[in-house]
Every structure is written in structure tokens, then in C-alpha cells.
Write a protein that binds this DNA or RNA. Structure first.
Lengths: 360, 360
DNA sequence: GAGCGTCTTGTAAGCGCTTCCACAACGTGC
DNA sequence: GCACGTTGTGGAAGCGCTTACAAGACGCTC
């Protein structure tokens, strides 16, 4: 084609025609003395290439330091071998754990991944998704979407493969991976009740996130099962972050008759609770039992180590990738809704209450 | 005017030929009754399109929900409008701060960014870089490289634009953005000396990272200036992480004659130090002064709030993007080496020592 | 030894876009 | 009424790759 210059010497890239820019498939073909189609076959590991030819091509690629052009491949094949990951933030152990799992599985399956942080800029999200889904990625993972944005509907219409991670509300026709938040919370509250706690407070997550409601429901169920009353002021709004946990706990602990245990809807929030307790010279767990949710690495690390509900975040990331790839391979496979098991991890931040409160 | 297909109706995409898949530039051209070249001009905001034509095209794009195919554009234009970011990890406040800055500036400048976490898998890094630089991204940001890998040399040869972030050793011909680690550390140590400390220990960062050596040098300079001896056992190796800080501090504090102040080469390490102190029932700052480095958000947050050397991490990310874009626009612009100012932030974790140690 | 598969290779036609070049339709100024 | 630039538009040639399709070489059968 264009730069098939058969006359000149072919073995010296810097000689004859002074090539500029990285080598293309044509250059390799020229050096190997085969057609570019054959080079392409070698690159893609097609079987029908004679061993000796293959070796010549491989040698030429090495010699020229050939690297396939990503966009060109993507355009020709109609897929990019990249999956996109849409997360709100990157500076939060919850997301980084999930991302870590995605990273691991994607790379194991030969996919790259493209991380987009939305910073909750809702207006940009839709545009992001539109562009990603047009030639940048083959499929999309969306972590912890708040509500169910319009673009999800659009993706569904376009039959573009995607998986929602940790989305707890209804999502008809969508693949979802999440964890059994409600059951996990119930187990945690039961654990506190078994230790003898009667006044157990809850700090919720962000209201827009479905998992918040699930955890609240689990709390209420466990309390009801045990016949314990739930005081409305014992349910404090949080934000899944340390700051919200701290604020909520400060409120709870400054009351004349504070709870003896606090369940926080995330580990970060639980860290905030512990800080608030320490500031008041309350010891954890002697004066206050604290339970978190997620089991991020730091939870096992602190003093006291945090009792928490383990949510298999990395595994969720991995599972989501597998689900997505399944849909990539067979676009007609029906969307699945997977809930991974949570597990109560009892560590040092919970103990029997010092005195049984009046409510008990 | 001129109609491409004068006979049939051109406004109904779902009529005549049943289109499948997302709309292309041709579909838009058909609906708008212009050639695809004109559509391309509109997309790219070229001036030479009549107002009325432009509007027709825009209407057609809206009607079809047209989104440009990213790979196709990239292939045709030779650039992607994406910059790549190579970082070791994503679950570490240091990186996330830098990444946040990059994100912000890139998006302000109309670029997307592609985050690749290398997890210190050195063998994969080079491959990553090769692929990224071939049609995935226009330029590369490399955060905190350990040593100066071979692929950097390759990038330089290929004249591929890249910027190193927080790389402190020699890098001839490379653009670098970092901070004045040495001066910052000197200021921190001086602060401790002014408070009356004489036995000041240092916990280093990872050895492979240039900034570690800079901080060590700053420490040694400040001690020498004050005429204070540096005991070899007061310099403990760390890893920039909490776990290393904890381990090093545990060692330092378990000695019969422990230092009265510890400088940690990162805030995370300082958190580890504080934890180690608390476990020994040492109070910070009364019994032990602690200084960190970085000033990640958590530093101002803890109790006690951490005295630390502020490194403008977000700003470093932003600056690096600006530098990279400069090189993108003018590939012959000479590489610059920018060092942003560090600043000592005095908070609650430092105080005069309880008793002047024998060394004083 | 003609007819038939199989294996290997080359040619050509795209993928969806940008952009150079050409050309028509318009004024201008003389 | 002519040459002349301007402006708006269409046609065509790529960008670097994949992948039908076709064709040549080879070995096999009957």
C-alpha cells in the first residue's frame, strides 16, 4: 500500500527511507518479508501461520520494537479490550478495595481498565458514560451509583454491557453485584445484644445509597426480634465517612443517657465514632462497644481492632468483572443479581456493657 | 440545497434502511442532508460552515443521539485527548491527593485521564507504558517512580511527552515536578530543636524513592547545623506506610533511652508512630513529639492533630498536567524541573520535651 | 494423474473519523 | 463582463489495524 517501498533496503529502519514515528505493521511486514496480513495473524495468535514464518515475524517485531496501535486495533475489531470503571472517588478505602479487585481480575483476564472518578459531578457522569461507551471501553462497571441515573437506562437500551456494584435498590434488567448488607447488619446487632447491650445506636450511611437502607432495615429487624425498643434519637444520619461518624457519635455520646454500643454503617464512620469516644475519655470497648461495616484493611489494624461486618469488597470487584466479561462474550445472557455473603468479624472493639442500662 | 438522496425521506433513521448500532457521522450527514465532511467540521468547531447548515447538523446529531467514536477520532487525528497516569497504588492518601489534582486540571483542560495502577509490578510497567504510548494516551504522568526505569529512556528516545511526579534523583532530559523535601525536613527538625529537643529520631521512607534520601539529608543538615550528634540507631528504615512507622517507632521507643521526638517521612508513618506511642501509654506530644510529612487531609483531623511538612500534593498533580500539556503543544519545549515549596504546619503533635535528655 | 481437501499466504475492503484538495457559488473591483 | 479572491461544501485519501475472500502450493485419494 502506501509505503511499500520494495526497492530500498528493508532491514535497516534508520537507513533508506528515514522512518519517523513508531513502527507499524507494514514496517514489520517489510522487514520480515511477508504481507501485513500475516503479521496481523501472528500478533493475534492465529493458528494458520507456518512456524518458520511466525518466527521471522516475531524477530522483526522485536527488532523494530513494534507495539500495536491501540486505537487502530479497537477501530478495526470493534472492541478495545478495556473495561471502564466509574467510581465516585478514589480516596476512600471502600472504593479502593473494590477497584483493587477489579484491577486484579481484569488484568488476569487480559483486559485493561479505565478508571473514571466522577466526584459526584452528576452532570458530567452522563457525558462520561456516553463517550466511554463509544469506542473507549467494551463494558462498564459502575460502583455504588446513587439512585439509578438516566444513563443506565440509555445503556440498557443500547444493549451496552454494564454491571452495577453495590447497588441495593431495584434495577430491572441490570446485572448487579452486592453484598448481603441486611443480614450482615442483623448479625452484628445480634452479637451486641448477646453481649448484653440494650441501648444500641445506629449511624446510617448516605441516604441516596441503597445499602444505607438495607443496613437500617437489618438493625430494625434485629432489634425487633429481640423485643428491644428502637429510640428514634438512637438512629443518627451519617455519610459513610469518618467525619459523619464522628459528628453523629459526638451527638449520641453527649446525651445524658448515651447508648452502650454504636453500630456504624461503615468502618470509616466507626473510626470517627472511636475518635469521638476517645475525646470524651471513654474507653473502647469497656465504656462503649463499636461495630463497623466493610472490614477495610485498617479495621484490623487499629487499636482496638474493629469488630465489623466483613463485606468482600475485593471479591465484589472481581465478581463484577467476571459477570461483565460473561455478558461481553454472550450479550444475550440474562442479567444476574449476585449478593455475596457478609460475615461478622469479632475483634476488640466490642465487649459486654459495663452496667446494664435501664432499658434492659 | 443539495440533497444526498433526493428521492427518499432523509429524516427518519428508523425507516428505509433499518440502522443498527449507534449512529455514525454518515447517519448524521444523511439526516442533515449534508456530506459527512461537513458534519465533521461541525463536530470540530471549524469556522467555515454556514450558520444555517451548522444548525441543521446539530439538530440531526441531537435527534440521533450522536456521540463521536473515540477510537476512530484518535486514529484519524493522531491524538486521543487522554493523558495517562501511572501510579503504584490508589489506596494511599499520598497518591489519591496527587491523582485528585491531576484529575481536576486535566478535566479543566478538556482532557480525560487514564489511571493505571502498577502495584509495583515492575515487569508489567514497561508493557503498560509501551501500550499506553501507542494510541491510548497523548502523554504520560508517572508518579513517584522508583529509580529511573528503562522505559523512561525509551519514552525519551521516542520523544513521547511525559512528566515525572515527585522524582527526586537525577533525570536528565526529563520534566519533573516535585517538592522541596530537603528544605521542608530541615524546617521540621529545626522546629523540634527550637522546642528544646536534642534526641530526634528519623524514620526514613522507602529506599528506592529519591525523596527518602532528600529527607534524610535535610535531617542530617539540620542536626549538623545545630551541632547535635546523630546516633545511627536513631535513623530507622520505614516504608512511608503506617505499618513501617509503627514498627520503627516500636523499636525506638522500646529502648532504655528513647528519643523525645520522632520525624516520620510521611504522615501515614507518623500515624503508625502515634499508635506505637499510645500502646506504650506515652502521650503525644507531652511524652513524645511527632512530625509527619505530606499533610494529607487526615493529618489535620486526628487527635492530636499532626504537625507536619505540607507538600502541595494536589498542586503537584495540577502542575504536572500543565507541564505535560505544554509539552504536548510544543514538543520541542525544553523539559523543566519544578520544585514546589513545602511548608511546616505546626499543630498539636509537637511540644517541648518533658525533660531535657542527657544528650542536650 | 485429474480432482479434491488442507494449509499458508496475499489482496482488498473495511472500522469511523479527519483533513487535504477541488470546485461551485458568490461577491468584489475594474 | 471579466479575472479575482472568499466562502461553503463534497469527494477522496488516509490513520493502523482486522478479516473476509481468493489463490497458490501441497499432499492425498481413486
Amino acid at each position: 500500500m502506501r509505503r511499500a517501498t520494495p526497492g530500498s533496503d528493508t532491514s535497516d529502519a534508520s537507513g533508506g527511507t528515514a522512518r519517523q514515528g513508531p513502527a507499524t505493521i507494514f514496517d514489520v511486514a517489510l522487514v520480515a518479508g511477508v504481507s501485513y496480513a500475516t503479521v496481523s495473524r501472528v500478533i493475534n495468535g492465529r493458528a494458520n501461520v507456518r512456524g518458520e514464518t511466525r518466527q521471522r515475524v516475531e524477530a522483526a517485531m522485536r527488532e523494530l520494537g513494534y507495539v500495536a496501535h491501540v486505537s487502530a486495533r479497537a477501530l478495526a475489531r470493534g472492541r478495545t479490550q478495556v473495561i471502564g470503571l466509574l467510581a465516585e472517588e478514589v480516596c476512600n478505602a471502600f472504593f479502593t478495595e473494590v477497584i483493587g479487585g477489579v484491577d486484579q481480575e481484569a488484568s488476569a483476564q487480559g483486559y485493561d481498565f479505565l478508571l473514571c472518578t466522577t466526584h459526584a459531578r452528576r452532570e458530567k457522569e452522563a457525558e462520561y458514560v456516553a463517550r466511554l461507551s463509544r469506542g473507549m471501553v467494551d463494558g462498564l462497571l459502575i460502583v455504588l451509583p446513587r439512585g439509578l441515573p438516566d444513563y443506565v437506562e440509555r445503556l440498557r437500551e443500547d444493549a451496552f454491557p454494564f454491571v452495577l456494584i453495590d447497588y441495593d435498590a431495584d434495577a430491572p434488567g441490570c446485572s448487579v453485584v452486592n453484598a448481603t448488607s441486611r443480614a450482615g447488619t442483623r448479625a452484628a446487632i445480634r452479637h451486641l445484644i448477646e453481649l448484653g447491650h440494650r441501648r444500641i445506636a445506629l449511624i446510617t450511611g448516605r441516604d441516596a445509597v441503597g445499602a444505607s437502607h438495607e443496613r437500617l432495615a437489618g438493625y430494625q429487624e434485629a432489634m425487633a426480634e429481640a423485643g428491644l425498643p428502637v429510640m428514634p434519637e438512637d438512629i443518627q444520619p451519617g455519610d459513610f465517612l469518618g467525619i459523619g461518624g464522628y459528628a453523629a457519635a459526638s451527638l449520641l455520646l453527649s446525651r445524658p443517657d448515651p447508648p452502650t454500643a454504636i453500630f456504624a454503617s461503615s468502618d470509616l464512620a466507626a473510626f470517627g465514632v472511636i475518635r469521638a469516644a476517645q475525646e470524651r475519655r471513654l474507653r473502647v470497648p469497656e465504656d462503649l462497644s463499636v461495630v463497623g461495616f466493610d472490614d477495610i484493611p485498617e479495621a484490623g489494624w487499629m487499636t482496638p481492632a474493629l469488630t465489623t461486618v466483613r463485606q468482600p469488597l475485593r471479591e465484589m470487584g472481581r465478581t463484577a468483572v467476571r459477570q461483565l466479561l460473561e455478558r461481553l462474550e454472550d450479550p444475550r445472557s440474562s442479567p444476574a443479581r449476585l449478593a455475596l455473603e457478609t460475615e461478622l468479624i469479632v475483634r476488640g472493639s466490642t465487649a459486654p456493657p459495663r452496667v446494664t442500662t435501664s432499658a434492659g
